[in-house]
């Protein structure tokens, strides 16, 4: 489980780590918009250089980024195949056995690859440098103004933080039940199809039962301590915006503006 890179927080001490999570989320939002500005390859080049330097400032190692991108490799192969079969524009690159591959198929795939890679790098720059709990605090703050329209900002943030809190617990529980069932002769790797279904069932049912149990216990514990979602409460951890945050946001906006100019004016 420890080899999952996508969305994982990496505790380091860097300028990016110290930025205000709210500002980071806003910046990520603008950067994601920037990915969709049709500025062509030069635009992606600029954006790419920017993101890579952000990741380097955050002291993240680049092979961590590559690992985060691994899950999309399969999707890209699939995409390439579809594109090669469907796209019949551009000039002929090569043909074999009477089957021709056109240049646009490759270009389109590369285009989407860049886009996806940039998006993953942008989100990784956020999630790898921000503690999950800080993220939820920031989400709560950012959703705050929407409370007026009935958006349960605090409840959403609480749900996210509880979910995050229980991920390691559930992983541990899963491993425990797997071992217990292995002792009863369950074999998750070998066996016929029907046996495998049984094996998965023997894992999922106990996991569900104990999750519901846990949820109920937690709800009781929270109620016993008088938890009221709508109550006004102070926070132990105060988020603070500093000059650095504004500079960061300014740079991001400048980049976005530049890309838009590049796309529509030049």
């Amino acid at each position: 489980m420890s080899n999952i890179a996508l969305g994982r927080y990496i505790p380091l001490d860097s300028l990016i780590h110290k930025l205000d999570p709210r500002m980071k989320i806003i910046a990520m939002f603008f950067l994601l918009i920037a990915v969709f500005v049709p500025a062509g390859y030069p635009g992606y080049g600029v954006l790419g250089v920017f993101i890579v330097s952000v990741l380097l400032i955050a002291k993240l190692r680049l092979n961590f980024i590559f690992r985060a991108m691994k899950p999309m490799a399969f999707m890209l192969v699939f995409l390439l195949m579809i594109n090669v079969l469907v796209l019949r524009t551009g000039y002929v690159l090569f043909s074999f056995y009477g089957f021709t591959v056109y240049s646009d198929a490759i270009y389109q795939t590369l285009y989407i690859t860049f886009r996806l890679a940039l998006m993953i790098m942008i989100t990784t720059a956020l999630t790898a440098t921000t503690k999950p709990l800080d993220l939820t605090l920031a989400i709560e703050d950012l959703l705050g103004p929407l409370k007026r329209f009935g958006v349960p900002a605090h409840e959403i943030a609480m749900m996210i933080s509880i979910a995050l809190r229980f991920i390691p617990t559930l992983i541990e529980e899963t491993q425990r039940i797997m071992k217990a069932q292995a002792s009863r002769g369950v074999d998750l790797k070998e066996g016929k199809f029907k046996e495998k279904i049984m094996a998965i069932l023997s894992l999922i049912v106990p996991l569900f039962v104990s999750s519901f149990q846990r949820a109920e216990d937690l709800a009781d514990a929270m109620e016993a301590r008088g938890y009221v979602p709508s109550a006004t409460r102070t926070r132990y951890k105060q988020l603070k915006r500093t000059l650095k945050d504004y500079i960061m946001l300014f740079v991001v906006l400048l980049l976005l503006g530049g890309l838009i100019t590049l796309a529509f004016v030049v």
Binding site: K179, P206, S210
Partner: peptide, 11 residues
């Protein structure tokens, strides 16, 4: 092998 709290393995 019977684990701790084996009742959680019933399904």
């Amino acid at each position: 092998l019977v684990f701790q709290f084996p009742e959680y393995q019933l399904f």
